[in-house]
């Protein structure tokens, strides 16, 4: 199958600093592809180059069969973009926002009016068709922004942090909408900070850091290949002493982050048994998830830039 996005040797250098430093990746038709990474990892810059919004310093980009940035406008005709910050037009109503955006694609009024009911239904904003943007909640604005990106019936939809800043209910609703898009055969690319989001939605994810892709694979593959099955998080007085004395032989790997000792193991039973004998320590046992893979690969220290 011909990939829908193909990126080879992509680099972006600002001054002396390579923000994106040799990225190769392919996105297959119909999949949901997640681009993950801490702040400053280069994922937004990678995405912007892919969308033809920033010229690359070096590398080859092909999106939807078009060379980028040479054929950006042609490519955009078949692409939907959901930006990180909602840039809806505050002077227009919900319907007017969709209509004006459709105008940017050269979609005629009659054709737009045919598509409008489906777009409103997708965004679940049928009752808000004539509402002003300022009267919408954060979740509604997001849904409208996603519906706006669908106005040209795109083959590929790219979403930059689609649920950042939304409450859990709104997030769940967005996820259901995105799954609906996938069911209809669209290809999705998204960036996110929420590992749960990536684990639930994405067929494959790429984890980036310092301008490079560290690993690519399905969430299940990444968890299998890069992390032990079980995690026991331990905290409380004397956690370090307990770690040295008891966890060392029972966990495959331990890591102290702040006041919490993370113990990674294929079998948690010996750890839990030992913890029962140290009632002053509190613990949480859970299955390892994508976030553990992410933290293992990109480190646990805080990124402020």
């Amino acid at each position: 199958m011909h990939p829908i996005v193909s990126v080879r040797g992509l680099r972006k250098v600002y001054g002396e600093r390579a923000v994106v430093d040799g990225v190769d990746l392919q996105v297959r038709p119909g999949e949901c592809f997640g681009l993950l990474g801490p702040n400053g990892a280069g994922k937004t810059t990678t995405l912007r180059m892919m969308l033809g919004l920033t010229p690359p310093t070096a590398g080859e980009l092909e999106v939807l069969g078009f060379a980028v940035p040479a054929q950006v406008q042609k490519m955009h005709e078949r692409l939907g973009i959901v930006p990180q910050a909602d840039n809806l037009d505050p002077d227009f109503t919900v319907t007017e926002n969709l209509r004006v955006y459709a105008g940017y694609f050269g979609i005629k009024k009659r054709e737009f009016l045919q598509r409008l009911p489906a777009l409103l239904e997708f965004a679940q904003l049928e009752h808000k068709a004539d509402a002003t943007i300022s009267s919408l909640s954060g979740g509604m604005k997001r849904r409208l922004t996603i519906a706006r990106a669908l106005v040209n019936a795109p083959d590929l939809v790219v979403l930059d942090e689609p649920t950042t800043g939304l409450d859990p209910q709104a997030r769940q609703l967005i996820w259901r909408r995105l799954r609906l898009l996938l069911a209809r055969g669209r290809t999705l690319i998204l960036t996110t900070h929420y590992m749960e989001e990536a684990e639930r939605l994405c067929d494959r994810v790429a984890i980036m850091d310092v301008g490079r892709i560290l690993v690519v694979g399905s969430p299940a593959e990444l968890m299998r290949d890069h992390i032990e099955r079980e995690v026991v998080e331990v905290y409380g007085p004397g956690v370090e002493d307990w770690g040295r004395a008891h966890a060392a032989g029972k966990a495959a790997r331990t890591e102290l982050v702040g006041e919490t000792l993370f113990c990674y193991a294929e079998d948690e039973a010996p750890l839990v048994a030992s913890l029962r004998e140290h009632p002053q320590l509190r613990f949480l046992h859970r299955r390892a998830n994508l976030e553990d893979v992410f933290l293992k690969l990109t480190g646990k220290e805080l990124r402020d830039d």
Partner: peptide
Amino acid sequence: AAMLSAPLS
């Protein structure tokens, strides 16, 4: 920015 996301240069 919204216009640039559409096929406008």
